[in-house]
Design a protein around this nucleic acid. Structure first.
Lengths: 205, 205
DNA sequence: ACGCTAGCTGACCGATCGGTCAGAGCCTGT
DNA sequence: ACAGGCTCTGACCGATCGGTCAGCTAGCGT
C-alpha cells in the first residue's frame, strides 16, 4: 500500500519514531483489534522492523498502554472537572460539550477500548478506562436509574464510538469533516441524554 | 472454568455437536473477536478437540460463516418485507419492531459483525452483512440524508449492538431480562430514528 | 459375525506469534 | 581519533496458530 522506496532515512530522533509507531499501532488496534494486530504488521506499516517496535516499547501490552493512556487521562480530567462543580443545566451542557470534543479527538482510542475492553480485561489501562466508564455512567444516571436511562447512556456511548470509526467505513457520510459532524453529534447525544436528568428523589418506577 | 469430569460422553449425534460448537464459537467471536479466538479455545470451551472442530467445519472461516448466516438471513428477510410494502407510519413502526426483535434475538451475531466487519472484509458472509447494512441505511435515510440523519442511524445501530453485549458487562443493568429491555430499547430507538423521516422532496440542507 | 461409516482424536506440518539478544551504523563529547 | 551511547536490525527462541492425516471406536445394516 505504501511502498516507500526505503530511502536511507533521515536520522529519526527517538521521539518522532515512537510517535509514528504509536499512531500506526492505534490505527491497527482500532480497526483489526489488539489480538488481531501483530507486532510485525505494525512494524511493516510504519516502515520499521519488529525489533524496533520492541526497542521502543517493552511489550505489545506496554504499547497498548502508551497508546490509550492519553485518552484515558483526558476522560478522567473531564469527569473530575464535572464532579468538582455542583450540578446544573449549565454544567451538564458543558460536560456534554467536553465529552463530544473528547469523542472527536480520541475516536480511535475510544473505539478500541469500547469494543475490546471485555477481552482485554486485566490490562491496567483497560481496567482504568473501565472504572472510568462506570463512574461516568453512575454520575450521569445517579444511583437509581431506570433500565431505559442506562440504555440511553450505553447507546450514546457505544453508538458514537461505532459511528465515528466503523460506521463511516460503509455507511455513507464519508468521513465528513469535523465541523459538520460536531453539531450533528452534539444534537443527537444531547437529545439522547436529555431524559436522563438528575433526580435527587429517585422517582418513576 | 467448566472442569466437566470428562465423562465417557453419551454418543453425540452430528447435529447436536455442531450446534454446541456454533454456540461456543459465537460467544468467543463476540467477546474476544474472530482474530482473537483460536480453534483450540473453541474446542476446549465446548469440550472437544481442535480436530473435531475442523471435522465439523471446513475451516475457521467456514465456522464464522455458519455462525453468522442465520442472523444475516433474518435481517435480509426483515428488510425485504419492509421494501415490499409501501412506506407509511405503520409499516415503519412494524419495521422498527422487527428490527428490535432481531437485535434482541441475534445480539451476539450483530455485535460480531458490527464491530469486526472492517477487519473481516473479504469473507463472504461479512460482505453480505455489510451491503445489507448499507441498504438498510439507504432505505431509512433515503438518498438525500443529512449528516445528522446518518449519524442517528449509526448511533442507533452501533449503540444497540454495544449496549446489549459489551455494555451490560460493566454498565449497571446486569443483563436485565428481555421483557424489561425490549420496551426501553424500542422507545429509545424509535425516538432516535423519528426525525429520519421519509422525504420525497429532499429538503433541509 | 462382519465390514462400513460417522464421530472423534493425537501426532504432526509449516507459518507466524511475542519476545530476546548480539551486534551494526551513526552521532556526539572529548 | 577515539569511546560511548542511541537507534535500529537480523537471527533466533519456544509457543501457538490454522490445517492435514491416519487411525481409533462405536453403532448399524447385512
Amino acid at each position: 500500500m505504501t511502498p516507500e522506496p526505503v530511502l536511507p532515512q533521515p536520522p529519526h530522533n527517538r521521539q518522532s519514531t515512537s510517535l509514528e509507531l504509536r499512531a500506526t499501532a492505534l490505527e491497527q488496534f482500532a480497526s483489526v483489534g489488539f489480538a488481531g494486530t501483530s507486532l510485525q504488521q505494525i512494524a511493516d506499516a510504519a516502515g520499521y522492523s519488529k525489533s524496533s517496535v520492541l526497542y521502543h516499547f517493552a511489550s505489545k501490552e506496554a504499547l497498548l498502554d502508551e497508546v490509550l493512556t492519553p485518552a484515558v487521562d483526558r476522560l478522567e480530567a473531564i469527569l473530575e472537572r464535572f464532579l468538582a462543580t455542583e450540578e446544573s443545566a449549565l454544567s451538564r451542557s458543558r460536560f456534554v460539550n467536553d465529552f463530544i470534543d473528547f469523542i472527536l479527538e480520541f475516536r480511535l482510542e475510544l473505539h478500541t477500548f469500547i469494543n475490546q475492553s471485555q477481552s482485554l480485561r486485566g490490562i491496567p489501562v483497560i481496567d482504568r478506562a473501565g472504572v472510568l466508564i462506570v463512574r461516568l455512567s453512575d454520575t450521569l444516571c445517579h444511583g437509581a436509574a431506570s433500565t431505559e436511562d442506562r440504555i440511553r447512556f450505553g447507546i450514546a456511548l457505544g453508538g458514537a464510538a461505532y459511528t465515528l470509526v466503523a460506521g463511516m467505513t460503509f455507511l455513507g457520510a464519508e468521513i465528513a469533516p469535523a465541523e459538520e459532524i460536531r453539531p450533528a453529534l452534539l444534537a443527537v447525544i444531547t437529545e439522547l441524554l436529555a431524559p436522563v436528568t438528575v433526580r435527587t428523589t429517585p422517582s418513576r418506577k
